[in-house]
């Protein structure tokens, strides 16, 4: 990623304008062509500098109000195998291994979004059955204080 890429990300990270030729104004500001912006965004996607280019959804506003962070206490020697099983569930949007901490025994984290808390609980029960891990908890978000995504 070079300085121009960084400027493109800064110019688009809050959202492109929702009108015809949305890259035209940014191109003028940066003094490069629209095609160059598009090519560079494509390249950044390929290089995994950006995970995707697209819409961030206000999921609560369209009724996907249940958001569960499921935390699992998985024996260390099984994390690799169990993490892979969890990640394969379509309903799981994120799956991470994290360290345990004093008073915190859970080392695998999966995020599940759905229309109801019941749906999330069912997904967690399915995962538990598939992995044999029954030491887990669902933490539902009650308030969203901030959600900006990663910014430069």
């Amino acid at each position: 990623m070079d300085a121009i890429d960084e400027r493109i990300l800064k110019a688009t990270q809050n959202g492109i304008p929702l009108k015809r030729s949305p890259f035209a104004k940014i191109a003028i500001e940066l003094g490069i062509s629209e095609q160059e912006i598009i090519d560079r965004l494509g390249k950044m996607k390929e290089d995994n500098v950006i995970r995707r280019f697209g819409a961030s959804i206000g999921h609560r506003d369209i009724g996907i109000v249940a958001n569960a962070m499921c935390v699992w206490n998985v024996p260390d020697e099984r994390t690799e195998e169990v993490g892979a099983i969890m990640a394969a569930f379509e309903e799981v949007t994120h799956c991470y291994e994290r360290p345990r901490a004093p008073g915190w025994d859970y080392n695998l984290f999966t995020m599940v979004h759905s229309y109801t808390q019941e749906d999330c609980k069912e997904v967690a029960a399915k995962i538990s059955q598939a992995t044999g891990i029954d030491n887990y908890k669902l933490l539902f978000s009650q308030t969203e204080f901030k959600k900006t995504g990663v910014r430069l």
């Binding site: 688009t12 290089d47 950006i50 280019f53």
Partner: peptide
């Protein structure tokens, strides 16, 4: 509010 924005989802570790 159904769409917050259309833009890049930046990968922190990727940069």
């Amino acid at each position: 509010g159904a769409i917050r924005k259309i833009g890049p989802i930046i990968n922190r570790t990727g940069i």
